[in-house]
């Protein structure tokens, strides 16, 4: 991935130089190690600011809506699936975006790395599969594959599904026999234990909505949680309101979520909200043979009727 950044910068430079696009959306270094953040650049001098590494866990498909003129965006496998979803849902037109696809070997779980250190991390870099992490008191050499985010360790679409150019060699896709072990584990519990699991999961939620804001699917002009007339759900931290928020947010993502992990990446309370969305992803796969964002020509299951749709639940 270190070599692909040279390629990304080159492509971005050319695109801006030839005025083929007005802006490029990518990642830049944040103010602290491991905190890359989204950046939009409009001048070719700024292409030096672009970076790409295993900490770029947010999903840039979230920033391509309502842009004027043609824009370029840097996209991992999962991000390209969200771009496909955007095109299907008429949020952007295909010819408005230039996709710089990045074949991806997974993003890292920053909390897991932070937990190895008692003090603050002051340096992070990576060399292929090795992560070098340093705090004032110690240095660690870590194997990236042991620190992948949960979604990346189960990802079967690492290569971009749609792109104008690739910034690196295609990578081998992982073959996963059991794609939803976490969902199955919860499903095996009895009803009260499941309820307890989700109560425990969301108990620290501060309703900051970072998960929603980071999600490319959540683009309604007024989200149901922000409506005041009618007010669909209470705005405080009452546990029933928190549950309702999470349940409904997940349901709005049904058949659309690509499990990119941006929601979890953004959560300041380290809540794995994917426990909600992954159940729906598994259902979409089991009931409709559907995985979101793989094909520009297919309509999502919840917006198309088929006589084969499961209907056993209707009396």
């Amino acid at each position: 991935m270190d070599t692909c950044i040279q390629k990304i910068r080159e492509i971005a430079f050319q695109l801006l130089d030839k005025k083929e696009v007005e802006r490029v959306i990518g990642f830049s270094n944040g103010t602290i190690p491991m905190a890359t953040s989204p950046i939009t650049i409009a001048s070719k001098q700024d292409t030096e600011k672009l970076v790409f590494n295993s900490t770029c866990g947010l999903n840039l498909a979230n920033y391509i809506r309502q842009q004027k003129g043609k824009i370029a965006v840097i996209a991992k496998g999962c991000d390209t699936r969200n771009i496909v979803t955007h095109i299907i849902e008429n949020q952007v037109k295909r010819d408005q975006i230039y996709i710089i696809g990045v074949p991806c070997k997974g993003m890292i779980n920053k909390s897991k790395i932070k937990a190895l250190f008692e003090d603050e991390i002051i340096k992070f870099d990576e060399d292929g599969e090795i992560l070098n992490v340093e705090s004032s008191s110690k240095k660690e050499k870590l194997n990236k594959k042991d620190y992948l985010r949960h979604n990346c360790s189960l990802c079967q679409h690492r290569n971009p599904v749609i792109y104008d150019v690739l910034a690196g060699e295609r990578v081998e896709e992982q073959i996963i026999d059991v794609p939803y072990p976490d969902v199955e584990k919860i499903a095996a519990m009895d009803a009260d234990t499941r309820w307890g699991h989700f109560q425990d999961l969301t108990k620290n939620c501060i309703r900051c909505y970072a998960c929603r804001n980071a999600c490319p699917l959540c683009y309604c002009p007024t989200c149901f949680v922000d409506e005041s007339g009618p007010q669909w759900v209470g705005k405080g931290q009452d546990k029933t309101d928190v549950n309702t928020f999470h349940f409904l947010r997940a349901f709005h993502c049904a058949g659309r979520c690509t499990d990119c992990g941006a929601c979890v990446e953004a959560c300041p309370m380290e809540i794995n909200v994917r426990d909600f969305t992954r159940k729906l992803n598994k259902d979409s796969l089991d009931m409709f043979g559907w995985e979101a964002g793989l094909d520009l020509t297919k309509r999502p299951p919840l917006d198309a009727y088929s006589p084969d749709d499961p209907n056993h639940f209707i009396k």
Binding site: V183, I186, A187, A191, D192, T193, R194, W195, G196, H197, F198, N243, F247, A250, F251, F276, K279, L280, D283, F313, I314, K315
Partner: peptide, 17 residues
């Protein structure tokens, strides 16, 4: 399915036409 997954009893959720 999701409500059931969260631990709400299946029989509380009913759909009919």
């Amino acid at each position: 399915n999701l409500l059931e997954h969260m631990g709400i009893e299946r029989d509380r959720i009913n759909f009919s036409w």
